[in-house]
Simulated scan of single mutants.
Amino acid sequence: MLAAGNIVSLTDAAADRVKELMAAKDKGFLRVGVKNGGCAGMEYTMDFVAEPEKLDERVEDKGVEIVVDSKAVLFLLGATIDFETTKLHSKFVFSNPNQTDACGCGESVTIVPATR
């Protein structure tokens, strides 16, 4: 298992929200990844899964465990996941050093794979 700092890390707010979501689900994992889509080329994904896929990476941070899609590791390396609440929305927000651009609405991003 890789340490949280090696792939992604969670802020306190994100860890608290993941704990809430997983308590409501009773079991399983929150799986984080990326997929092709949107006007900027890629979108972040978050899904509930009963079990990680064979090559997925488990990440433990701040008392929670999430799963990172193996195909997304180089795109998410060094990213921080936060949970933001404003008057108009509540959502997970990615701060990703590999992200080079985002569309105007913020739903899709351009990400280059990490080189380390």
Rank of each mutant, 00 (worst) to 15 (best):
H89N: 07
S95E: 08
G28D: 11
S70E: 10
A79E: 04
D101P: 00
L2F: 12
I81Y: 00
T80Q: 07
A79P: 07
P97N: 08
A24R: 14
F48A: 09
V73E: 02
P97A: 07
D69N: 09
C105R: 00
D101A: 15
T86I: 05
C103W: 05
I7S: 06
G28K: 08
E65Y: 01
V34S: 00
A13M: 04
D56H: 10
G37V: 12
I7M: 02
A72S: 15
T86C: 01
V109D: 01
A4D: 11
F83T: 06
V64W: 04
A79V: 03
D61Y: 06
T100N: 01
A114D: 13
T11L: 00
T86E: 03
N98C: 10
Q99H: 02
E51Q: 13
I81H: 03
E65T: 15
M1T: 12
F48L: 11
G37P: 10
A14G: 09
I7E: 04
Y44K: 08
H89Q: 06
D61V: 12
R58Q: 11
T115A: 01
A40I: 09
L74H: 04
V109N: 05
D47L: 08
A24Y: 09
E53I: 02
G78A: 08
A72W: 05
A3C: 10
T80C: 04
I66Y: 09
K91N: 08
L77T: 14
H89P: 00
E65W: 02
L76N: 02
R116W: 06
A4Y: 01
V112Q: 07
V8I: 15
I66S: 07
E51S: 14
V8R: 01
L55E: 15
K62N: 07
E43G: 06
S90A: 15
M46H: 08
L30D: 03
L21S: 10
F92P: 05
K71Q: 08
G33K: 02
V73A: 01
D26Y: 12
L21N: 11
G106W: 04
A14E: 05
G38T: 13
V73H: 00
K71H: 11
A4I: 03
A72M: 04
A14M: 05
V34W: 01
V67Q: 09
V8E: 01
A23L: 12
Q99F: 00
V34Q: 00
A3W: 03
G37L: 07
G37F: 07
M46E: 09
M42L: 13
E51R: 10
K71V: 02
H89E: 11
K87G: 14
T110R: 12
I81W: 01
A24M: 12
V34D: 00
D56E: 07
A4F: 01
E60P: 04
N98I: 05
D69V: 00
S108M: 13
V112L: 12
R31K: 14
I66D: 09
Y44I: 09
I81V: 14
E107G: 15
G106L: 11
F29K: 10
E51T: 11
K25Q: 13
V67F: 04
M42R: 14
D16C: 02
V67A: 08
K87W: 10
A24N: 15
V32F: 15
D82F: 05
Q99C: 12
K27T: 13
N6D: 15
M46I: 14
V68E: 06
K27Y: 15
K54M: 06
E43T: 15
V93H: 03
E65D: 02
A79R: 04
